[in-house]
């Protein structure tokens, strides 16, 4: 997958949120074979945020993709992105601008505004967006390096609520489409890839499963399976049966 001007061997991007320990995080990262992982920025000393995952990520040689999680306005997100650039020495940013805390849906107006500013400042912007094909097009038009539509709300685990919208986004996007949020289990990830998404970003479905390393393995395989199925081209859905065994040469018994 070419994303942000670089070639990547894995189409699975992992979020690091929700793991119960760094050991569990590490086991899942290894099992997933992902190359890109997200992290967030929070105040030092806020006890609730837990240990930093950075040492683990660096030791495994993974690429850090900082996010702007928790931002509700373009201004907050832009400032967070600038801080992330300083903290991690990267121009890449997973841009999240949330509209409300019940749905965690993106605020499209603030998102587009922040994306435009950050692209102008030289960031490689990967926006978490709703499944609206027009908004995806607008994000691409302002120079985002990918679009990352939700399948269903963050942590909802419903998979893809609106297959048609994801197909519409995939159909017209000329930048990679990464399905971000909503995946619940492996078949959801496979489905996203079958629809033609270039990759998936998964956090909760792995980190909050009973056995994150095993689920990370399942997701790795699902992403590969879905990608192959997409490339191979599925057969059409039909109402009636189509025999797979030839009828010619049937004996008269």
């Amino acid at each position: 997958m070419n994303l942000g001007g670089r070639d990547w061997g894995s189409r699975l991007i992992m979020g690091t949120g929700g793991f119960r320990s760094l050991e569990q995080l590490e086991a899942a990262l290894v099992a997933s074979a992902c190359e890109i992982v997200t992290v967030a920025l929070r105040r030092i000393d806020a006890n609730s945020t837990g240990p930093s995952p950075l040492e683990t990520i660096d030791r495994l040689g993974l690429f850090v993709l900082p996010n702007t999680a928790g931002c509700y306005t373009a201004r907050e997100a832009i400032r967070t992105a600038r801080l992330a650039r300083e903290a991690f020495a990267t121009d890449w940013i997973k841009l999240e601008v949330i509209g409300d805390d019940r749905t965690l849906h993106p605020d499209p107006v603030e998102l587009l505004s922040a994306a435009e500013t950050l692209v102008a400042e030289g960031f490689t912007v990967l926006p978490y967006t709703s499944d609206d094909p027009i908004l995806a097009r607008r994000l691409e038009a302002v120079g985002c390096a990918a679009v990352m539509p939700l399948g269903s709300p963050i942590g909802a685990g419903r998979g893809i609520d609106n297959l048609h919208n994801i197909r519409l986004i995939v159909e017209s996007a000329e930048v990679p489409v990464i399905l971000d949020a909503g995946i619940g289990t492996a078949s959801d990830a496979a489905q996203a890839m079958e629809l033609g998404c270039d990759g998936v970003l998964i956090a909760s479905a792995i980190s909050r499963s009973d056995d994150p390393a095993t689920m990370a393995t399942a997701m790795r395989l699902a992403v590969e399976a879905g990608r192959h199925a997409h490339l191979a081209g599925r057969i059409p859905r039909r109402l009636h049966a189509t025999a797979s065994t030839p009828t010619a040469g049937l004996p008269d018994l």
Binding site: L25, T38, L41, A181, A203
Partner: peptide, 30 residues
Amino acid sequence: DGEVVPRSDWSTTRPAEGQQVEVLRAVQGG
């Protein structure tokens, strides 16, 4: 006060009375 202070300026930047300093670090997040 909301604006990033580049690492190269940390040792020469002196916050003034009443200014807000946010010191952030990496945490787990999706």
